[in-house]
Design a protein around this nucleic acid. Structure first.
Lengths: 193, 193, 193, 193
DNA sequence: AATGAATGAGAGTTCATTCAT
DNA sequence: AATGAATGAACTCTCATTCAT
């Protein structure tokens, strides 16, 4: 049982590290800053996380977890696809920091085996799920029959990834709107969002 | 005029830094490593570049320059669009390191005003050029008339950006093939590559 | 009176610290390790010993006490001398850790006044006792009459100390055998062990 | 060619570390102190020695080298034995710090494989050399014929080691005198020093 | 009697940068 | 044009110690 009067230091440290990575990148992540953000001594950070690396792992778990929550759940294929794309759009709007962190993680993955494993799994699952969903939409006659399910899934994924990168020209939410509108058109679905 | 017998230290240092960023990221960029890669003393690096930041600027110039070379040149709209997408596909295949560096730069941009300026300009120019090109293709009847030029340009750009991120699930060139095939289908163009 | 159902935490902590010093030296003595060895929290250690220094004092008392138990007791001079040397030989065989700890203590003594006092006293007493014993053996005609009691006592002491240092070439017990055989020969006593 | 105007920083750092170990032991060795003793920045120490461990290796080499210089050289067996014991006595008088450092090293050896190797070799060589020398003295009729060369060598070695430990009761040089006098008597040699 | 949580001080190490040569 | 030597500042991490419970 958690004593609610006691602050959740562990969680606070992960949140602080997450925020630091979002704004300063891994390049600018300093354990002292994280500890200071939470208002604890640097030794306290090491009380909860044996090393900076361990703290980073916790941040990875947190970020990947949030992302995976957008994965399709129950319902008809069309509903699931719609729900998934809407959830992504919503997440993009609601927590831009998540995308900043995810981008940092993606760039880090080639040098971090365990992170690469996570992405390999997540990305693979994402693509399979999306392709299957699109195929079921085609079978159900809800989207254009001449569509290549796998290729379309791929395009959606890379476009979403590309959108998650910091947008420097134009308003990010305008860009997202434009892109999601293109998704609709591509899939032949109406009212995506 | 450059004396060809004398090694181009400056260029070699930029190339070494570029390679280091591609493999280790900004996070892992060490001036000592760069100097060692070229086989010169660390002080020599500072003779050519007053600071690490200056070296990074040079790398940025180099990378952005290479990227800008893929921008559409002369010819009919359809030819230009085809040529541009082909050039991107070719670059993606030929120098994966450029994409790694570009991704690193994109992530760094929010914390680096001058880099942000560069991307704002480049991305803006890229989008305008692409949108205009697509519009001209539409006007010429070469692509589907119901296409939104600006939105399609946006989708192409984010998808290309997304593709430039390290791909961890699936073969990168397969992914590129799938995505470029989707581009064709989307634009209604044949023989993109 | 000690409640036997309750574990002797104090004693266990001293024993654990003693073992740690024997294997890792003072250099490698960590209070956390000692507490962990006993299976208690680090704060519990500080409940019994206000400081690391206090714990070390207790270990010193324990080690010196064990060593002093080998000091000659009752009996004829020859018997006492024999008994003493045998006890040392036995201790050397039975508890090599004691010697490791004693060596660590000796090296620490120059920087630790109170420890230096202990050794000054112990060593002085040891030398006086041994010299007197040897003299009484000489007087009793049991050992060579031309022996210098004080000098011989000194040699025995330094040799025993030298033997207590970690032996790296040769088997420690072989070395001890050789040295004790030399003692016999030197003193003209038979059957020392 | 060494520029004599330039200070030998490497050597100075080794000397300072040597002195620190002699007075404070490994337990009290701090790289910052060593650097401060030499009057350089801590980073300078790391310029010459990649790690504290590397600095310690250099000190070991220095100390062991000085000790090995006392190993018997040329001459008749009796002369060599005399010279060796005199050299040890002299070293004991001249540089007490060497013995302090050697003692620290001996205690460290069980936890340091490479150091243990050094001592295994040095001690083994020392014992073989001494035993052989004593045997040759016996053969030459210079020392008592009933002496066990190996055992006597062992006794000499452990006694010298014991003497090298900090003496806390009595004047160190008096102790050395007494012990060397006992060596003479034991070997039946006159005028050892 | 015992603990989980927290800390201050300080450890070794790294790195971009400088400067005399 | 190039370097070896040196440094200040900052980094992650450790450890004995404290304190509320």
């Amino acid at each position: 049982m958690i004593d609610e009067r006691r602050p959740d230091r562990r969680g606070a440290l992960v949140a602080a590290a997450y925020a630091r990575i979002a704004t300063a990148g891994f390049e600018g992540l300093r354990t002292r800053d994280v500890a200071a953000d939470v208002g604890v001594n640097i030794a306290t950070l090491h009380y909860y996380f044996p090393s900076k690396e361990a703290l980073i792992r916790a941040v990875i778990g947190y970020a990947v977890g949030r992302f995976q929550a957008t994965m399709p759940g129950a319902g008809s294929a069309v509903d699931q696809l719609r729900a998934h794309l809407r959830a992504i759009a919503e997440l993009l709007r609601a927590d831009p920091r998540l995308w900043a962190v995810m981008s940092e993680l993606v760039l880090r993955a080639p040098r971090d085996t365990s992170l690469a494993d996570i992405f390999r799994q997540t990305d693979g699952y994402w693509h399979r799920t999306l392709a299957e969903l699109i195929q079921r939409c085609i079978d159900a006659g809800a989207v254009a029959p001449d569509l290549d399910a796998s290729g379309t899934a791929r395009l959606l994924i890379v476009a979403i990834k590309g959108m998650s990168l910091p947008a420097l020209a134009g308003d990010p939410s305008d860009i997202a709107d434009q892109v999601f509108t293109q998704f609709e058109r591509l899939l032949g679905l109406d009212e995506l969002h």
